[in-house]
Write a protein that binds this DNA or RNA. Sequence first.
DNA 1: GCCGTTTTCGGCCCGACTGTTTTCAGTCG
Length: 570
Amino acid sequence: MDKSEIAEVLNEVATLLELKGENRFRCLAYSNAARTIESMSEDPTAVAKEGRLGEIRGIGERLDEQITELVTTGGMKFHEELKSSFPDGLFDMLKIPGMGAKKVKAIYDKLNISTLGELEYACHENRLVDLPGFGTKSQAKILAGIEHLKKYRARFLLSDALGESLGIIEALEGFKGVKRCSLAGSIRRRVETVKDVDIVAATEDGGPVMDLFTKLPGVAEVVAKGDTKSSVTLEAGINVDLRTVSDREYPYALHHFTGSKDHNTSMRGRAKKMGLKMNEYGLFRGEEIIPCSNEEAIFKALKLDFIPPELRESQGEIEAAEKGELPDLVEESDIKGVIHAHSNYSDGSTTIKDLARACAKMGYGYLGLCDHSRSARYAGGLDVSSVKKQQDEVDKLNDTLNGFRILKGIESDILSDGSLDYDDATLASFDFVIASVHSKFNMSEKDMTERIIKALANKYVSILGHPTGRLLLAREAYPVDMKAVIEAAAEYGVVIELNASPHRLDIDWRECRYAKSLGVKISINPDVHHLENISDIAYGVGTARKGWLTASDIVNTLPARGFLEALARR
DNA sequence: GCCGTTTTCGGCCCGACTGTTTTCAGTCG
């Protein structure tokens, strides 16, 4: 059992105890333990088996027992009993912004409401306003929160959808009746959130393939099953559609089901102008099919350069492909440095040394360490003395890492007045500074834009971190005029981050081309908190590709020295 | 539930914001 799974159970216990109305410090003990486990450098399962958990500060006799039970048996009785004493719907309510355990408890206890639907109805009936601690505003806020949840309930993060679908692709590829298969749809175009997973497979006999598909592990429900089209719902809640076609039809079907709809419309229009007809079964001149063994051939037949799936969003890609002006898109292998990593100095789970080792092992040449700054207290932000201590440690480490380099960075909070939270001398001690907004999200668009632009004008700022602050499917971006921010970045020579966390993917790909047109450079940063986040770079690269970016638009495709020189150009 | 000790209880916990209050509770990062 890995760290985050253990932490999840402990956090759930904390929430459940709060729902029960337990002493808040008892609840806190569990959420503290969750954080402690998550930031352990050793494997907690191994530590538990060696009986050393109790030595860790914050884990006493009882938690030692319970965590050991969890990692040895895969479950925790205490957790299960607590969980079964509340209806599942309460957990949905906790997803409403502004609703914590106390408020959910009040609603459950006083109004006997246990599902989102009941809660929505009660809000419409104006029944929350009389509840102590609630009023008209909180009722309206809850209603808006439910609306938001409903709107996004049917969508999934790209990373989750990919994670769920890779096993299916593997199973299909391994099946002897399948000649070739691929993800299609928005997931193949690397859109940041997706509604479902589309798969196209080439086979001469769909029946057995569909038998396999509908019985794969993880399938919760078969929505529809035929010889050429089946649809299932996975236990994770996501829908997966499989289309089977003959191998001859496969390239056309793959293109058709990859979309987007608008891209396809334009492509069909182009075919028509050339006296051809295009659909999911082929490209035809009259009755005669124009043979294409892959997608490249289809584009070629339409006198176009190959358009990578990420670009098929009807953003001028067909015109560019016609003129041979498509960009040579950045690839994952172009990325040379891992920028924006949190160590266990702040809220990361890993030591600097282990971070550097992992990056080096994955073939990267440098690590841009960026812990939180001092005003981010919730995340263990570094005070000035910790900064000094960390920088000394980095200097020592750098002497030992042949060729690999750790850069001294920081993720400095942009305070509400646009200033940073260190003095100039401290800021000057870093190799580079990422400036990010982490507080006061509810400013007006005008104030927020001014706040960020003021930070960009600070000569120590090298990179603007996650420029909109959005958390996909969870929190809207704060209001900000991105056009003005990009223009300011161009004026001051500041690089903009493309935060590669699959929860953020921020800057949005739709804004990348404007940045590029003004010469603003982008840094694809995985915002590492745990070692496994390093590979999130792939999602950032997908988003950058959607934004038409090439390796030369991205500063961390350069070696360490070039990267720092590019940042210094302001 | 954990911890430390003034050693078996009492304190633990950061600050801003919001919406509810009229001095504060709950939520969040």
